[in-house]
Design a protein around this nucleic acid. Structure first.
Lengths: 191, 191
DNA sequence: GGAGATTCTGACAGTTACTCTCATTTGGTA
DNA sequence: TACCAAATGAGAGTAACTGTCAGAATCTCC
């Protein structure tokens, strides 16, 4: 990696770090892009070269491609839901304690702020496509097959419900809550 | 209803009608609030008194409380999913052909525009609470019971997947697609 | 039907997110 | 060192909001 790319990565990280700090200290909407830019020692113009919107500075998170890759790499003899469970476990266990704290803090911020929450929900909707892709690959069906997409919708739905619960309750463990949600789905959602 | 309330309802409807027309004719982001206000013959200030944001002029839709009321009113001997199916059918059959066309056109607009889509996804997330409330009432469980919320998440998930499909395909019939999604969920989502 | 209280409206000024353009600087390369 | 491409900063401009205030429309009570 040349100097240029290293510098860009550092700038991106600095912007995100200062943005999250300011959001925590004084709230999301009370923090202006100009303040973030000043804290990161760049011009406001440059902020928008790194993040298309103020939201993106919070939401940018390259975990999705990792999730998909790990899901596809699960042993083929696993059933679909066991494979999803294993994927969730794998992904979450990669996080260190601090990273987990970081993720949780961000979740709290996101679910408080309407715009951020809406953007996150949109990411969940895209998750349907991605999970449908995984399911298609593992079952040999087409990714736009109705039952595949419907199944993916249910998976995203229970994960979303679990996220909403875990975000609201600081005591709960993401790993446990998400896994229980998938177990319950696998059992046919008995009430 | 006094003159004041009737006038307000008329103004609200006029804003929404002109907004949707302008969005259709020239696109969402190319249409300014000032243009909508001018078309509806009100001041920009007044626009924001009726709708908190430009988005809200598209998204405002008093169908949700109706949906919940109808769901709760389903005969108690019906199972949960049959009750949801009956509710979806009841609600959609109330729409006239023109109303259906209106709904479909709005869906297309919403799913094209990122901000609108995100706001809609947020409404779906709120739907989890509401559907969990219905399920709680019909089963005598608590609305924040884990299995109730998880079940509601799955229902919202499959409905979301179905909506995304129906919105993308102008040939498809909302009623059929949504009902099939619930049938598939009831059957345990076999692949 | 009119006086007074209440609510609605429009005008206006201000903030902020975001876009575009252009000159300058910085890093990569021969 | 000299040249080219990419990154940056400065500044002007647009549009979505927000808050305030005076005037107009509606309601209520007599």
């Amino acid at each position: 990696m040349g100097l240029r790319e290293r510098k860009k990565a550092k700038t991106r990280a600095a912007i995100q770090r200062h943005a999250l700090r300011l959001f925590r200290e004084q709230g999301y909407s009370a923090t202006t892009v100009d303040q973030i830019a000043a804290a990161a020692e760049i011009s406001p113009s440059t902020f928008f070269r790194y993040f298309a919107t103020k939201e993106a500075a919070v939401l940018y998170d390259p975990v999705d491609p990792v999730f998909i890759a790990i899901a596809i790499a699960q042993p083929p003899e696993l059933g679909l839901i066991p494979a999803m469970r294993a994927t969730v476990t794998d992904v979450l266990q990669r996080f260190s304690a601090e990273e987990m704290e970081f993720v949780r803090e961000r979740q709290l911020l996101v679910f408080r702020e309407p715009d951020l929450r809406a953007a996150t929900m949109d990411q969940f909707a895209e998750g349907i496509d991605q999970i449908a892709g995984v399911a298609a690959q593992r079952t040999g069906r087409a990714p736009d097959d109705f039952v595949v997409r419907n199944w993916a919708g249910a998976v995203v739905g229970v994960l979303l419900a679990a996220f909403l619960k875990a975000a609201g309750d600081p005591e709960s463990d993401y790993l446990v809550v998400l896994d229980q949600a998938l177990v319950h789905l696998e059992a046919g959602l008995p009430l």
